[in-house]
Computed example of a mutant assay.
Amino acid sequence: MAATQIEIPEDVLDSARLTPAEAKRELALALYSQQRLSAGKARAFAGLSLWEFRQLSASRGVPVHFDESELAEDLKAIDCWERLHS
C-alpha cells in the first residue's frame, strides 16, 4: 500500500499536547465524524481495533455511521469471537 507523509511541526504537537500517534487518532476520528472515512478505514489509520475505535468515538459523542461493509466487518469479528470462545 502506498503512503503519503505529512509533516506536523513539533511546536504544533507540543501546543496541542499530542504525540504523533494521538494526532493520527484525532485525524482519523475527525474524518470519521465528517463521514469521510468508514469506521474500518478510520480505525486502521488510527492503529486501533474496531472495538477501541468505537469506544473512542462514543467517548467523544461521535455518532456511529454504519454501512454494509461495516456490518460485514462486524459480523466477521463476531464470528471470530464466537469461535475463540466456544
Rank of each mutant, 00 (worst) to 15 (best):
M1K: 05
A2W: 00
T4R: 01
Q5G: 04
I8W: 00
I8L: 05
E10Q: 12
E10M: 04
E10V: 11
V12R: 02
S15T: 12
A16P: 03
R17T: 08
T19R: 07
A23N: 00
A23T: 03
E26V: 04
E26A: 02
L27P: 03
A28V: 04
L29G: 03
L29P: 03
Y32G: 12
Y32V: 13
Y32C: 13
Y32I: 11
Q34V: 10
Q35H: 15
R36H: 11
L37T: 02
L37D: 04
A39V: 15
R43G: 11
A44S: 09
F45P: 01
A46L: 06
A46K: 03
G47L: 15
L48Q: 13
L50K: 01
E52C: 14
E52G: 08
S57G: 08
S57Y: 00
S57R: 13
S57K: 02
A58E: 12
R60V: 01
R60P: 03
G61H: 08
V62Q: 08
V64E: 14
F66E: 04
F66L: 12
F66R: 06
D67I: 14
E70M: 12
E70S: 13
E70Y: 07
E70A: 14
L71R: 15
A72Y: 02
E73C: 10
E73M: 14
D74I: 14
K76G: 04
A77F: 06
A77Y: 07
I78F: 07
C80I: 15
C80D: 10
E82T: 03
E82Y: 10
R83H: 05
H85N: 12
S86V: 03
S86Q: 07
S86P: 03
